[in-house]
C-alpha cells in the first residue's frame, strides 16, 4: 500500500519525533511510506480563526499534493478532521485544475491502523504507566471511538489507566489558547489535575497540539508527567524502545 504521510506543520516544525515514529511504525507494518515534500499546512489555524480565504487556498494546495496515493495518514485528529470534514466544503469538486483529481482517503493514525490495516496489536513495547486523553476533534468530528485505546491495550508492558473527565476539552482550541488565555488555562488546570490523579508517568493523545498544551502546563509545574504522542508509543519496540527527547 502506497501511503502518504501528512505530518502536519506543527509536528514537522516542533515535534519531528512524532513524524519519525509514524514512518518507522508504518514501514515496520509493511507500508510503502512517502512524504510529499510540497506539503505545508491544512489551513485549520486560518479557517478556525475566521480567515477563510487563506484556509481555502491552503485547502486547494493540500488537495493537489495528496492526490494519487492509496491513503493519506495524519498523526492528528484535528488536521484529519480539517481535511476530511472541512476541505470538501471549501474546495468543492468543481474548482479549476483540481476538478476530478483522485482524492486519497485521509486517515487519522489510529483509524488507519485499525480500519485500513485491520490491526490492534502492532507489536509495540512500552513499559510505562500511561493515561490517554481523547482529543475533541478525534472524539467528536472523526468519532475514532475506542480505536486508540484498543491499540494501547495491545502494547506489551504498558499499564493503561483511565483518565477521569477524559472527554472534556484540555482548553487548547488553537488561537483560543491565546485569545482567551485565562479560560483556556482554567480548563487546562482541571485537565492536569485529572492527569496527575491517575499517577501516570506518560499522558498520550493522537494530537500534537493538545499534547503541546497539556505538556506545556505539566512542564511548567514540573509535574513529572511526559506528553508522548500515540505514534511514539506504537513505534516503540523492545529493540528500539522509546526514550524521552534529550
Amino acid at each position: 500500500m502506497r501511503v502518504a504521510l501528512f505530518v502536519t506543520c506543527l509536528a514537522d516544525t516542533f515535534f519531528p519525533g512524532t513524524g519519525r515514529a509514524v514512518v518507522e511504525l508504518l514501514e515496520r507494518l509493511g507500508c510503502d511510506v512517502d512524504f510529499p515534500m510540497a506539503q505545508t499546512c491544512c489551513g485549520q489555524l486560518h479557517g478556525n480563526t475566521g480567515y477563510r480565504q487563506h484556509a481555502v487556498s491552503l485547502a486547494r494546495r493540500h488537495k493537489g499534493i495528496f492526490a494519487g496515493y492509496d491513503a493519506v495518514v495524519v498523526p492528528s485528529g484535528s488536521c484529519a478532521a480539517q481535511v476530511r470534514e472541512m476541505h470538501p466544503g471549501m474546495v468543492g469538486d468543481t474548482h479549476g485544475a483540481m476538478a476530478g483529481a483522485m482524492v486519497a482517503p485521509t486517515y487519522e493514525l489510529s483509524e488507519f491502523l485499525v480500519d485500513a490495516l485491520g490491526l490492534t496489536d502492532v507489536g509495540a513495547y512500552f513499559p510505562h504507566r500511561v493515561t490517554y486523553h481523547p482529543t475533541c476533534h478525534s472524539l467528536r468530528l472523526l468519532q475514532v471511538g475506542d480505536k486508540p485505546l484498543r491499540l494501547l491495550r495491545a502494547v506489551r508492558g504498558l499499564e493503561l489507566v483511565d483518565l477521569p473527565g477524559a472527554e472534556e476539552c484540555c482548553g487548547f482550541g488553537g488561537t483560543f489558547a491565546i485569545k482567551n488565555a485565562e479560560v483556556s488555562t482554567a480548563m487546562l488546570a482541571d485537565k492536569m489535575r485529572c492527569v496527575q490523579d491517575t499517577g501516570a508517568e506518560v499522558v498520550t493523545a493522537g494530537d500534537s497540539s493538545c499534547l503541546m498544551h497539556i505538556g506545556g502546563g505539566l512542564s511548567r509545574l514540573r509535574a513529572g508527567v511526559a506528553p508522548v504522542h500515540l505514534a511514539e508509543i506504537l513505534a516503540s519496540t523492545e529493540e528500539a524502545p522509546w526514550a524521552p527527547a534529550a
Binding site: C136, R140, C169, F176, K179
Partner: peptide, 10 residues
C-alpha cells in the same frame, strides 16, 4: 463572542 469557544464540539 464567536471566539469564546475552544471548538470542542460538546
Amino acid at each position: 463572542l464567536p471566539y469564546a469557544s475552544s471548538l470542542c464540539g460538546a
